[in-house]
Design a protein around this nucleic acid. Structure first.
Length: 614
DNA sequence: CTTAGGG
DNA sequence: CCCTAAG
């Protein structure tokens, strides 16, 4: 059984109403928030019944809501916007700039949330660069990711391996992961290792499917067997749709639908899933409003806002940090902060004074996202740790300082809107363009064009394709806090475990671009992973190398902290390492000679054609 | 800014 | 992960 958000007495048809094309009319109405339909979080039972969702499931959804905005623009890049452009081109309503702008923003918003959900349910993607090329060139305006292709070329890792690098060993290895045999707890562990976050789902089938999909980067996951080998799902005989391994749980209808459509017409499937997901996203959002108004203590004025969202814990903390910096001359003078200070001239945030019914005056900042204003109280942040001057008072008595305050809030906002709640400071500038995209729907299309031409269409597919299991990582964002560091010390990120998917991407990236070109790999394979700097990649690769060449630890007593890297991946790493004369120093005592040659080969040869492909 | 390597 | 040196 899978958690879904359903509309009572509704069905696919109606859900599609919220889709892109048809949505334009409804979406262009600013009132669409007041959607009459009451959405309800439900769970589809095995037999198709709808049952109320459990608390756990609600919590899971809440997770999505928390981080909804994280990567929406990228999602939009990946699929949604392409579609928009496509549709716009063929539809007469294109020149309505205003409505289309609004529409886009809406769509992006939805897609963002959708994506979070989507990633949880359908790893709609194949991280293979090759796949992307194919898809990109093959379907120009279409949905960039026909799941069909994925299924076939699903395991890019092994494909690459056997194909381009003639790797005989890899296929021989029995790096099988048999999910069938695992207990729920084990499945949970695997899940955690794969997606980097915990799950509360207790359904084995669901877990297995999720893991399998994550590991294979394909939605074409067998429903009867869950043995993963070489990053591919080992399929058993014919998959009888209603046959199940466990014998206890009946097929999840939703999943069946997915499987079926996976095999059906690729394009239509894409849109279906998307539409469906959009529906779900919409519902989720409504749900979020419910949750918000119900559980938190935000000022009432916020309730009517279109997209209310309680600031993430992380966000709050970051804001605090930013603000605290403000009052620390020492920090202010640091070059980094100077960089932070420059904000986009297009930023739409500005402080606004609101007079409440009771006569109080409240200062909020107008957070203009995609034309919709959201007011967020300036000083409603909870401040942990150090006490702070009262900004309200500050602004009241010293209006001139408000500019600075606004600036700071903007700063925070940029962080906030561009990517949920991870990285601050250093990456803000990089990410700002994304924020701008969100804030400037008008420019979205231009931006899009720029991106697709400059970055190459790779980027598009990449985002859709490579990011999937990531939401999991993003969902755990809240835990990953950057510490302000009391005295002089820099901040430290919480350890963020590498998920299997990430490792796979890394390996793949290395296989494509070659080791050492970390920034390249970062751009290609980790575009959506805002954390994971190129340095991180490098470090991880170093570790992988070490791990891959270390003889399999003969069962040391202690249990592995994290799930061991699957053998196939390690082998892959070893391969790549060897072909690059990249061998851990202690083990490579005897091959100093090959170095330069191979390196040279690397650059000139086409072994790694990672370049932007047009 | 990006890499490489040590810590 | 962090930090730093070096290109």
């Amino acid at each position: 059984m899978e958690t879904v958000v359903g509309v009572e007495g509704n069905d696919e048809g109606q859900v599609e109403e919220t889709g892109v094309e048809k949505g334009s009319s409804a979406l262009s109405s600013p009132k669409q928030i007041a959607d009459p339909v009451v959405y309800k979080l439900v769970r589809v039972e095995g037999d198709g019944r709808l049952v109320p969702a459990t608390d756990d499931e609600v919590m899971e959804v809440e997770d999505f809501l928390e981080d909804d905005k994280s990567e929406m623009h990228e999602v939009a890049d990946g699929g949604q916007t392409v579609r928009n452009i496509c549709n716009g081109g063929s539809s007469p309503g294109k020149n309505q700039l205003e409505s289309s702008g609004l529409l886009k923003s809406e769509t992006e918003a939805d897609t963002g949330k959708v994506n979070a959900q989507l990633e949880e349910s359908f790893p709609l993607s194949a991280p293979s660069f090759n796949d992307n090329h194919i898809n990109q060139s093959g379907s120009t305006g279409e949905c960039p990711k026909p799941p069909d292709n994925m299924a076939e070329s699903g395991s890019s890792a092994s494909a690459l391996c056997t194909g381009s690098s003639s790797n005989p060993d890899f296929s021989k290895l029995k790096g099988e992961i048999c999910l069938d045999k695992l207990s729920i707890r084990e499945l949970h562990e695997v899940f955690k290792a794969t997606f980097g976050r915990e799950t509360t789902v207790k359904d084995k089938l669901w877990l297995k499917r999720r893991i399998a999909m994550g590991l294979t980067n394909s939605c074409d996951v067998s429903t009867t067997t869950f043995t993963i080998k070489d990053n591919k799902l080992l399929k058993n005989a014919e998959e009888e749709c209603n046959q199940n391994v466990d014998g206890s749980v009946t097929q999840d209808p939703a999943v069946v639908a997915t499987d079926v459509s996976c095999k059906d017409s690729p394009t239509s499937h894409g849109s279906q899933v998307e539409d469906h997901q959009i529906g779900a996203g919409k519902k989720l959002r409504n749900r979020s409003i419910e949750l918000d108004s119900g559980s938190d203590h935000l000022p009432t004025e916020q309730r009517g806002a279109k997209r209310i969202r309680r600031p993430t814990k992380r966000y709050i903390e970051e804001l605090s940090e930013v603000e605290s910096r403000d009052y620390s001359p020492r920090l202010m003078s640091s070059p980094k902060n100077a960089g932070l200070g420059q904000m986009s001239p297009r930023s739409c945030v500005r402080p606004v004074r609101n007079v409440l019914s009771d006569g109080r005056t409240v200062v909020t900042r107008l957070d203009s996202l995609g034309g919709s204003g959201v007011h967020v109280p300036y000083v409603s942040r909870v401040r942990r740790s150090r006490p702070r001057k009262n900004v309200m008072a500050l602004m009241k008595f010293n209006p001139s300082s408000m500019g600075m305050a606004a600036k700071l809030v903007k700063k925070a906002l940029v962080v906030h809107s561009s990517q949920t709640d991870d990285d601050i400071g250093d990456k803000v500038l990089k990410k700002r363009s994304s924020a701008d995209q969100i804030q400037q729907p008008f420019f979205a299309e231009v931006e899009k064009d720029r991106q697709s031409s400059v970055m190459g269409r790779i980027e598009v597919g990449e985002n859709l394709g490579l990011r999937q299991a990531d939401s999991s990582g993003d969902n755990s964002d809240d835990n990953v806090v950057t510490v302000p560091t009391a005295k002089g010390g820099r901040r430290r990120k919480h350890h963020r475990a590498w998920t299997l998917v990430e490792v796979m991407k890394l390996v793949e990236g290395v296989s494509k671009c070659g080791p050492g070109r970390w920034s390249e790999i970062k751009r290609l394979a980790f575009a959506s992973y805002s954390y994971r700097t190129s340095v991180d990649l490098k470090d991880k690769w170093r570790n992988l190398l070490k791990a891959s060449f270390a003889q399999t630890p003969p069962d040391d007593g202690r249990k592995p902290t994290s799930m061991p890297i699957p053998e196939p991946i390690l082998v892959r790493v070893r391969e790549l390492a060897e072909m690059n004369a990249q061998v851990p120093p202690n083990l490579s005592s005897s091959k100093p000679t090959v170095g330069s040659r191979n390196l040279h080969e690397t650059r000139s040869g086409e072994k790694w054609d990672c370049g932007e492909v047009k």
